[in-house]
Simulated scan of single mutants.
Amino acid sequence: MGLKGKLTAQIEMKAGGDLFHELVRYEPQQIPNISPTTIQGCDLHEGDWGNVGSVYFWKYTLDGKQGVAKDVIESIDEEKKSMTFKVIEGDLMKLYKAFKVGFHVDTHGGIDLVTWTLEYEKLNDDVEEPLSMLGFCIKLAKDVEAHHLKAT
Rank of each mutant, 00 (worst) to 15 (best):
L3P: 02
G5E: 01
G5H: 01
K6G: 04
M13K: 09
M13T: 14
M13N: 10
G16T: 06
G16M: 06
G16S: 08
G17K: 12
G17V: 12
D18S: 08
H21S: 08
P28W: 08
Q29I: 03
Q30Y: 08
I31C: 02
I31P: 01
N33Y: 06
I34K: 02
S35I: 01
P36F: 09
T37V: 11
T37F: 08
T37Q: 09
I39F: 05
I39W: 01
G41H: 04
C42W: 03
L44Y: 10
L44M: 10
E46K: 12
D48R: 14
D48N: 11
W49P: 09
S54R: 09
W58N: 02
W58F: 13
T61C: 02
L62W: 02
D63I: 04
K65W: 03
K65C: 07
Q66T: 09
Q66A: 12
G67V: 05
V68Q: 15
V68L: 09
A69G: 14
K70Q: 10
D71E: 15
D71N: 15
V72W: 06
V72R: 14
E74Y: 12
E74D: 13
S75Y: 10
D77M: 05
E78D: 13
E79S: 10
E79L: 10
K80Q: 11
K80N: 14
K81Q: 15
M83V: 08
T84G: 01
F85Q: 04
F85N: 02
V87I: 06
V87T: 01
I88S: 05
G90Y: 04
G90L: 06
D91V: 04
D91H: 11
D91M: 06
D91I: 04
M93P: 03
M93G: 07
K94G: 06
L95F: 14
L95I: 15
L95S: 15
Y96C: 00
Y96V: 00
K97G: 01
K97P: 00
K100D: 07
V101P: 03
G102P: 07
V105A: 11
D106R: 04
D106P: 00
T107E: 15
H108Q: 14
I111S: 14
D112H: 14
L113T: 02
V114H: 06
L118C: 01
L118Y: 00
E119L: 00
E119V: 05
Y120C: 07
Y120S: 06
K122A: 01
L123Y: 00
D126M: 04
D126T: 11
V127I: 12
V127D: 03
E128W: 00
P130R: 01
P130M: 02
S132P: 00
M133D: 04
L134K: 00
G135F: 05
F136A: 03
F136C: 14
I138V: 14
A141G: 15
D143M: 08
D143A: 15
D143P: 12
A146L: 06
A146K: 11
H147W: 13
H147A: 12
K150M: 01
A151L: 12
A151I: 08
T152A: 10
